[in-house]
Amino acid sequence: MALISPPAFATCDLCDVHKNDSSGQFRVLPPVFRDFGGVARFSGPVSTVKCFEDNSLVKVAVDSPGEGRVLVVDGGASLRRALVGGNLGAAAARNGWAGVVVDGCVRDVSELAQCSTGIRALAAMPLPTEKRQEGQRDVAIQIQGVWVYPGDWLYADEDGMVVMASPLKA
């Protein structure tokens, strides 16, 4: 597998530039997410899933071509069930997802650390979800009080995560 160079951005620099933005076009996710994936720095256009203790739509998403996108999962901040595990992390990496951000839990932590994709979540929880085929895909979601929309751009590095309405200019 070829090594991918990290994206040329720093969330601290983005925050310096946009610190007085009141338009809602620039948003910072709270520092409550832990890094579980094999890639610490990632970015890409956002695709969303809204679900609660049911990862059926997360599986559908990561089993589809990621094309460098970031899947942002509104799991309702549940700490009772894991929405992403080793199999889904491997699928996300295999299918070209730049990252997966879960407002909820993950499991199979050692397997996720081997995945060549970014994975952030609130905590680890060994209990899997139920499969009820419930949830919504590519809808506006709220993650820790911050709105995230399909098509936004998410930038994640060692300092945190920011969401922007449009990508950085090259």
Rank of each mutant, 00 (worst) to 15 (best):
residue 154 L to C: 06
residue 44 G to A: 08
residue 29 L to R: 12
residue 1 M to P: 00
residue 63 D to V: 00
residue 42 F to Y: 15
residue 62 V to F: 07
residue 100 V to Y: 05
residue 46 V to E: 02
residue 19 K to L: 04
residue 23 S to N: 03
residue 56 S to C: 10
residue 121 A to H: 04
residue 124 A to E: 15
residue 94 R to V: 08
residue 62 V to C: 08
residue 116 S to K: 08
residue 126 P to V: 05
residue 134 E to T: 10
residue 135 G to I: 07
residue 119 I to E: 08
residue 85 G to F: 07
residue 14 L to S: 13
residue 31 P to I: 03
residue 155 Y to F: 15
residue 82 A to H: 11
residue 70 V to P: 04
residue 91 A to N: 11
residue 162 V to Y: 04
residue 9 F to C: 01
residue 51 C to I: 00
residue 37 G to W: 05
residue 118 G to H: 10
residue 111 E to I: 07
residue 68 G to A: 07
residue 159 D to F: 15
residue 120 R to L: 13
residue 6 P to M: 03
residue 102 V to N: 09
residue 51 C to W: 00
residue 2 A to I: 14
residue 82 A to Q: 09
residue 87 N to K: 12
residue 66 G to T: 12
residue 15 C to D: 11
residue 101 V to S: 12
residue 28 V to A: 14
residue 122 L to K: 05
residue 116 S to D: 15
residue 43 S to V: 00
residue 151 G to I: 02
residue 46 V to Y: 09
residue 82 A to C: 14
residue 41 R to N: 10
residue 64 S to E: 08
residue 128 P to N: 03
residue 48 T to S: 06
residue 81 R to P: 01
residue 60 V to M: 02
residue 33 F to A: 09
residue 47 S to D: 04
residue 116 S to L: 09
residue 144 Q to T: 14
residue 141 I to M: 08
residue 152 D to C: 05
residue 156 A to L: 05
residue 164 M to H: 06
residue 26 F to L: 02
residue 160 G to P: 06
residue 144 Q to S: 15
residue 44 G to H: 10
residue 19 K to C: 06
residue 108 D to N: 10
residue 139 V to F: 02
residue 3 L to D: 10
residue 123 A to C: 13
residue 107 R to G: 01
residue 53 E to N: 14
residue 82 A to E: 01
residue 150 P to M: 02
residue 9 F to S: 11
residue 55 N to P: 00
residue 2 A to C: 00
residue 121 A to C: 10
residue 78 S to I: 03
residue 164 M to P: 04
residue 99 G to W: 12
residue 71 L to D: 08
residue 121 A to E: 06
residue 16 D to P: 00
residue 141 I to S: 02
residue 63 D to F: 14
residue 125 M to K: 13
